[in-house]
Amino acid sequence: MEALEGENDSKIEISVVGNGNRFEDGVCLVFDIESIRRLRRLGITGILTGTLPSAAQQNVFLTVPLRLMAEEAVWLVENGFAVLVSDREALEMGVSDLTASDWDEMDKQQEALFEEQRRFKREQHFEKLRAVGKTVANVDANLESSLFVETRNESSVIQRQRYDFDTPELQKRLVDQLLHSETLKSNYLVYKALRAQGYCVSPGSRFGGRYIAYPGDPLRYHSHLTVPPALRYRDEPLDLLQLVGGGRLGTGVKKLWVLGGVDDESDEGVTFFSVEWAGFG
């Protein structure tokens, strides 16, 4: 689980991408292969989601970006392995100190860039005409090939390097946005407790829970636990129908159904109970 010695110890960049207008449902993505390798060593597997734009339906060999659960991202930030980077924050920071003249300047730069491309295309066009022996007549400003110009991929407002995301205040704000409800916070405590016991935790909807936990890397071990969402320790009654469903399915696939209880009134952490079909009845 420990990072290997001599390995790059710079923080892994996790992009938090807004889900439409609802930033609180932001999706955490990692785009760098080397970072993904380091995450794996830390016991964070995530889910590869990248596919081919021309064959989006193929989902057997997926590639970057790696999508992380919010819990994984927050755990990495809390343990100092990663830093959350959000384009929205960058945009807000980027525009905050812009003045009207800055905008004008950016417009002018963009127009100059376009003009340069158009000039280049016109010259090429004239050269072609000359090559076939035609004389250059009047300059047609709306030459067809000059209608299309390339725009830059990067934004002139967001210049990420200019901003340092790795400040405690900003990271805390981003973490709070990811864990914006009490339920999510409790779930995170359960996730953290499972990690502290050495489990590798993946999303658990395949077995009807919120997480499934492996005793080591998922490629080497079968998972042992299915963990439904956290319960309030004192006043949330167990849903016995769900317990029977989860327990019976789990026992069928050699997993325990693990209830994690979070008690706001004590600092004792998460209380776990493991459920398994008794084999009769």
Binding site: L194, Q197, H224, L225, L240, L243, V244, G247, T251, K254, K255, L256, V258, F272, F273, S274, V275, E276, W277, A278, G279, F280, G281
Partner: peptide, 20 residues
Amino acid sequence: IVSDDGTIVYYFIYKGLHKP
């Protein structure tokens, strides 16, 4: 676990994280 139709099912509960 006793259902209202009289069915009884039995489930083990262990304290803490247990092995399957």
